[in-house]
Nucleic acid binder design. Structure first.
Lengths: 338, 338
DNA sequence: TAAATTCATGACACCGGTGTCATAATGTCA
DNA sequence: TGACATTATGACACCGGTGTCATGAATTTA
């Protein structure tokens, strides 16, 4: 045998037509049991595998999903946000379970990514994953919708299409953090993240946090808030600036674990004890969170379930079934940092 | 327009043949500049994308690499080993840089994975990634070789084909750890990992460690060794069993960071101070390592370079170029655990 | 026993590109 | 000006499957 075996080779050896081979291999009931067995045996012997390109071309589908990972433009090449890495893992697993392959691709938010994968028939649908300034994406979402591209996204909401989003109940998560502080009588709260609506996820977390505090007659002082993106560095610097401005607080809610870890570093450097002087709560429950010193109290987003939901919903869209918006319940994981 | 635009549609609007459209879009010099421009404009307007399935089918290649991730069968669904997650990130980046897509797939070591992706023309080559009992894989490697499948692998060596492997100089890394202990006069050493040759990487690390100690007239006591696979749990239990058997040591080399982290937990529980009573050194330098308490001294494997090398070498193989075996130099990252 | 139904299979167009060969038009050189 | 090279394009087979329609044999029904 020179190249790879094709269905014609099998047909030749089995003494049947290529059509029959194709049918046999796909377990069509239209083929005689005996013939099927002969075809299978020969296929196995020749190490035959269906050519996906030919098959996909004909059927106009690919059994493949594409995952586009948007990174904070700031986070240079060094490290990928561990939360997304965890999501990637669970999405990969969920795809495998459904018999789909997963194409992974990093994207910068600005690039001309919309529908590339789906238009070129490399994937049946797209999963969008990333923090970041999703508002800029809306026009791209619209392009995707216009072209009838199947996609779901994590976190960001698509105008008029809540069903395309899977996300954690960030508002509820923020409330959990506030409840926790109040239960421990830590009412002089600081917040680090982005309280503007640039980053809708951080914004919701802050809103929930603020509202729950207000419900308990605690007001958060605007001076006790600092902006940060989701990196350890950013959290560190934001916290340092609060300290440098001599701003006092006994509780700190960080919009993500990485920010919280940076914050703890800054607090330690300033000889502020965590949790004695300041209780810290993060968000995400990344793997690192339980290993830092002190172990970080955080609001968990269940990445396993999240990945599954994204894949399941996307497959439903592809199959033309109805999908509902999915809000995942966050859980408070108390550890020693608070 | 009903469905997606094809090159025939463009040909129609541009008033040329479909052949010319195809040539124009691929920047063939055989096509007139003016015609090319017209074709490009129309393609843009129609939101045309080359159908990858058709193109791949004809050219018999896919511009895609497949990454097969083998997991320790023991590590249940919960978490993926962070070291491999980091590798996955760097491989994804390296692929993007080379204009290749990446298909990611989890595999159990036992499954019938060989060549699935390449045979079915979904990928031009395969990257194999995983710790684990690579010895069992040799027959599968042979199958791959026989079928002339292009692949590279991390860590494991393929008989007679050193060029297919990219790995860290595990032996040299083990020596670094030993040097470090000797420099700090910690010569009563324990080792946790797998000192048998089931896991060739762990084995090499241990060999380097042992040989360097011997070169300094230090002998490692067999009783001070315990087996573990690369999980925190496993490291924890292995260390506990040493402690339970009342075995004393003042230095501990763990074959991976996860093991080291588990070991530190066990030591702490037994009121053994790290690094005062026992100095601990790990291997990998995963992200968590710098956050644990105390921060973990470890032997770094540069995942960014590793990912790049894997991709570059695989592409060379695919292009039929010559490839040499690649040993990456490990670096000792001293932190407070030693 | 003729007609209808079921079963198993083959022939063939088709998916949407790419590569080869043929062809026409224009330019170049002896 | 005839021979030859160059440039731009079209026609067409082909990649390896899948889906439809036609066909013939075996079986059931009227």
């Amino acid at each position: 045998m020179k190249g790879k075996a094709t269905s014609f080779d099998i047909a030749h050896y089995a003494g049947v037509s290529q059509s029959t081979v194709s049918r046999a291999l796909r377990n069509s009931h239209l083929v005689n049991e005996e013939t099927r067995k002969r075809v299978f045996d020969i296929a196995k012997k020749l190490n035959y595998k269906v050519d996906k390109n030919a098959s996909n071309l004909r059927t106009q589908q690919s059994s493949t999903l594409a995952l586009l990972l948007f990174e904070d433009p700031t986070s240079d090449e060094s490290q990928i946000n561990p939360f997304f890495l965890a999501m990637l893992g669970s999405i990969t697993r969920a795809c495998a379970k459904e018999g789909y392959d997963l194409l992974v691709s990093f994207q910068s938010a600005s690039a001309d990514w919309q529908a590339d994968y789906e238009d070129s028939h490399r994937a049946d649908g797209i999963i969008l994953l990333g923090y970041g300034d999703y508002i800029d994406y809306q026009p791209k979402f619209n392009t995707l919708l216009e072209q009838n591209t199947k996609f779901v996204c994590w976190g960001a909401t698509v105008d008029n299409r809540p069903d395309l989003t899977v996300c954690c109940d960030n508002y509820g998560g923020g409330k959990l953090a506030a409840e926790h502080f109040i239960a421990h009588s830590r009412t002089d709260c600081a917040f680090i993240g982005d309280a503007s609506d640039h980053s809708p996820e951080f914004f919701s977390r802050f809103q929930g946090f603020k509202d729950e505090l207000l419900a308990n007659n605690v007001k958060i002082n605007e001076r006790k808030m600092a902006n940060a993106i989701s990196t350890e560095e950013s959290g560190y610097h934001a916290t340092r600036s609060l300290i440098a401005n001599n701003i006092k607080f006994n509780a700190l809610f960080a919009a993500s674990d990485l920010i919280a870890i940076g914050a703890i570093r800054a607090l330690k450097e300033a000889n502020i004890n965590v949790p004695k002087d300041v209780a810290v709560v993060g968000f995400d429950n990344i793997a690192i969170a339980s290993y830092v010193n002190p172990p970080l109290t955080t609001i968990e987003q269940n990445t396993t379930v999240a990945g599954q939901m994204l894949v399941e919903n996307l497959l439903k869209l592809i199959r033309g079934e109805e999908v509902q918006s999915t809000l995942l319940a966050p859980i408070l994981i108390p550890r020693r940092s608070s």
